[in-house]
Design a protein around this nucleic acid. Structure first.
Lengths: 219, 219
DNA sequence: GTTACTTTCTATACATGTATAAAACTCTTC
DNA sequence: GAAGAGTTTTATACATGTATAGAAAGTAAC
């Protein structure tokens, strides 16, 4: 009954987000422009800005929607450290799956509401492993930073490979001064091959081992 | 004696990079536009594109220049694990110091030539700690991803704080469902305070401990 | 010197995100 | 029902990165 005054809205945030999903599905994330999106909802580009602060917020909403709808691991290992690993891995997989993530990841430690499940579970497991609340938050943030770095880095690598831009790198390694950089020179062009490997799990396990000491072992 | 043919160039890559440094010093990185840069070198925007593929490459060159000229730790700890930590910390400090880094970090595992010193030293120390070459590269990449994630994340946090955009986050935490997210709800608005902390070192040490086992201890 | 060729530079154009101002629409109050 | 107030939408405009086409300025061949 508050009976809103003012011109009645033609579109809503939800409309916009839904339309954005359609556009992305149809034309990919690079096809998602404000004008195209406006056409999709039957309005003008600037009208969108009354429902969304800027494009970055739109992408965040999109991510929220996406993350909220993603399947989560049904059964988690009971042992806290293994549970952290399982949740972080799921988080990474979910986020890697949406291509516009890279433009949003500048949004530091916390994701949107729809993705809160991940920090909750990680912090919970960390506490159960014997950390204080503060330590658990630290652990989560460290894991988050690592995960974000991996996602961004690997997205960049994929893009570079797609563009065939290996040349610059090859040149760098070809012209390496073996005096100054013996290790890198020795690696030579095996670098490309070695860095194609997915080392997320390796780093994650190292982090968990280092952050959550064995002492208070479960149970 | 190759006696180059064609119209003689009026500007060079080096000119451009130098001018870019001046512009950044004067107007900050947000003032660095192709047109402004062109004016600074006394040419047109499009002329730049004969010396630089795109703006991202320009930023990479800039970073290269910057990183090459940065002071490096004069004396490193001899113990390999401590050395890795010292080098990674220096890398992080150097990179955090240049504000445009965030727009470049999508360039995954390796930086530009001027910054090769860091991977070289880290890989070297890792090998001396007893890792195989492959393992050492893995270790470097893991550390790199973590470092990149921290840099991007903290830059975003700083920006958000500067814009006073805490509101969205506060709302999220205020409306948290304590049933679904007990840990986060318990944290309440301490989140802001807890996540202001710099946990780079903590995570770095965890990584190093996890990646470079104690067994083959130095000596 | 004229022609061909190569490289660099200039002019123009376009798509994009978004600022700003004005217009349209609805409810409330008289 | 006319005037006012509050919202949302539209129109227009601008800065930005960059594509494209062609002009300018040099060397090499004749």
């Amino acid at each position: 009954m508050p009976a809103r005054t003012g011109r009645p809205p033609k579109i809503s945030r939800a409309d916009i987000v839904a339309a954005a999903h359609r556009v992305i599905e149809e034309d990919g994330v690079e096809g998602l422009t404000m004008r195209r999106l406006a056409r999709e909802v039957g309005s003008t580009a600037m009208a969108l800005y009354h429902h969304v602060r800027d494009k970055e917020e739109l992408l965040l909403l999109l991510l929220d929607d996406y993350a909220a709808g993603m399947p989560r691991p049904q059964t988690l290992p009971e042992e806290p450290r293994e549970q952290v690993i399982a949740v972080a891995t799921a988080m990474r997989e979910t986020l890697s799956g949406c291509p516009w993530i890279v433009d949003v990841l500048r949004a530091d430690d916390l994701l949107s509401v729809g993705a809160l499940w991940y920090p909750e579970k990680i912090i919970d497991a960390a506490v159960r492993a014997g950390l204080t609340t503060e330590e658990a938050v630290d652990a989560y943030r460290v894991i988050w930073h690592y995960t974000a770095g991996v996602i961004v880095g690997r997205a960049a690598a994929r893009r570079r490979r797609a563009e065939g831009g290996t040349t610059y790198r090859e040149r760098v390694f070809a012209e390496l001064d073996a005096e100054e950089f013996p290790r890198l020179a020795e690696l030579g062009r095996r670098w490309e091959e070695l860095t194609a490997k997915d080392t997320y799990d390796k780093g994650l396990r190292a982090l968990v081992a280092g952050l959550m000491p064995e002492e208070n072992r479960w149970p």
